[in-house]
Write a protein that binds this DNA or RNA. Structure first.
Lengths: 212, 212, 212, 212
DNA sequence: GATGAATGAGCTTTCATTCAT
DNA sequence: CATGAATGAAAGCTCATTCAT
């Protein structure tokens, strides 16, 4: 938890630091994040970072928490629990796209924190965030099965894993394509290509890859 | 590339060192792999490791290369290119399972090297291995589409990503389950549970998640 | 020497700060005393402490000076110089005990400042306080010898050292016993045990440890 | 506990490092001992010190242990347990003096470690060394009381404290006198002054300070 | 070639002190 | 004057790499 010193800072400065932390922890593994780099980027003394936070781990967890909150805010806006998950993927193209645009680093950070091996705090993070997140997904799947939106002859947990994997790789592919095509920070990508890709993805999800 | 000193070693010793390297790089992120640990495990002096290899990175790349070869050997045995990919997944349960058992560390290493963020050499690895691997998969998919084994109205690249993601998460789930259920190194898991899970997974892959 | 800013403070606030400083320097070695802890305890900004004093060392020396004055005040009340030192130890049990109760932190601070190695200013302190304190004790001893209160066939300096050492360890033993038996700040100890211990101690002092 | 790397070193080098550590920990409080200073003095890289020991605390405890052993070796030579404690002090002048000459830093280190406030490991040290040392002294006193060497109407614990305090201050006085009179490392002091001081000290111990 | 001790750059963290408000 | 955020030197510790034997 950040110290009071941090919380008392002007919102603008807090955001500057938070965003720098998210960016750094999102693009490098924990061990390669150099606090003095982050400090330099914020034009703040290295020591100040330790006035704001207990230690590096504190910065990391704070960073994850903020990223997670920002992400959840987006999801809760959609009342995920009571939505047809297929419709959700199908209709929310634009908003997902925008989320990925706006919360790109947050997204990358969370993926890394949850799925990469490079954190010395994997178990803690898993305990704190991941379990609820997979459980949450499984809940949605169960609800969708009960409503008859999706097939109910498959273990909801397996569907969850299937969904997570396929969609994570899909998103990663899209993000990397976007990042490669423009090294700037603008993160522009042909929206049409993206729409088309997502709609094909949905088809695969719904209908499978088998020839009919 | 290992130095001549290494290549001249007795095959037995070479294997010992290679396996230790694979195991270490497979279970820890690059930065947490301590060369002196590896050396100790091989009962070899730390300095010797530097007689055999240029540096840590050299060891890492050598390790990936071996793991990759071992894996490809398994795939080529099956004439992957000319197989029905659905049949492949459906019928090769046992052999996949055994592969995961025998080449577990190789498998984990490759997943980590290719998909985790914690390597300082991500781009190099991507350039050297991943592209060919994904290209390889896409070739198979194209062949499968041409033969009429799978639908051809979807971009083969997207199918590839879809397959990679869903199956990676699936395998990861299975492996972790197996690792959790027995802390020993024996890596045993109820084969029936595994068979059932895979068959459900294949159904999803083939038919999609939509209610019929 | 405290700055004018400090001296101009309301007496109440000055005492608050002085007492907090004494307590902190008495219970922790110099290097572990954190000025911001002291400031927090006084509900004063850390920066203010530096408006009051030049630096940490200034605070330390001021603190010792006050503790020393408070102690001397107690001694002079008794006209130490003209007292029979044996009577003094024997009869002043209660008052010594009370002094140790009321000026416990002062006492601990002085012991630490004078005899512990952990001050970077040992020599300075020795120069400033200890010499006069030992000289003072030696004066008393000489007076006692002249009056025939104690033996005069021993170098008064050696008697002084003997007295200092034996009584310091004795007091330390008693204080630690008191502190261990109650973690509270009340500093209560069975007065009877204490009286008995002191009277045995006096016997040893007077008569020595030899069998008669 | 030092690492194998240290134990494998040439005895000469081990001694060099051990002695440097003893000297530094004996003359400065724990927090002021800078490992890179010690390393520099041994003409060894800072990092090497950490090849030899786990960490600074490890160095400290190793240092105390060696000093303690060296000291005990001296005491056991004298069969302390079965000696008349007064004779011991009276007759062993020369050997005590030589011990103080040879093991000066060891002596200072132990005093500091056992009695100063500045160690973050006070309790651990107390547990490991001090308890046995005071218990040992009390055992000797009880034995002396039983043999009729010293008075038995006083609590042996109190006699122990009395003895510890008086003799510690005495030794300290002597050592500091010796150190002040010659800044060199030769540690010479007029042996006659010393003998005289000790014999007066013994008198006080035996007969007390009271006028006969 | 094998060994393992030696090296030092590089990172995290602390805290007395300064300084802008 | 009071405040408390900002500073940066300094210390502990790690580990890939080198090097003398």
């Amino acid at each position: 938890m950040p110290k009071a010193t941090f919380l008392n800072l002007a919102q603008e400065k807090k955001d500057l630091i938070t965003d720098a932390l998210i960016k750094h922890f999102a693009t490098k593994p924990y061990h390669l994040v150099d606090i003095s780099d982050v400090a330099k980027e914020c034009r703040v003394a290295k020591g100040s970072m330790y006035q704001y936070f207990e230690n590096k781990k504190d910065m990391y967890f704070y960073t994850i928490e903020v990223a997670y909150e920002r992400f959840l805010q987006l999801l809760t806006k959609m009342d995920m629990v009571h939505v047809n998950i297929l419709d959700y993927y199908e209709n929310s193209l634009e908003s997902v796209w925008n989320a990925m645009k706006d919360l790109r680093y947050e997204y990358m950070l969370l993926e890394m924190a949850f799925f990469s091996h490079d954190s010395p705090f994997k178990d803690e993070i898993n305990e704190k965030f991941l379990k609820q997140s997979r459980d949450f997904l499984v809940e949605i799947i169960k609800y969708n099965q009960k409503q008859g939106f999706i097939r109910d002859d498959i273990d909801p947990l397996l569907i969850g894993i299937f969904l997570e994997g396929a969609s994570f790789y899909m998103k990663k592919f899209i993000i990397e394509k976007a990042l490669n095509e423009n090294n700037t920070t603008t993160f522009e990508l042909d929206i049409d290509y993206f729409k088309d890709a997502i709609s094909q993805f949905i088809k695969l999800l719904k209908e499978g890859i088998a020839k009919k």
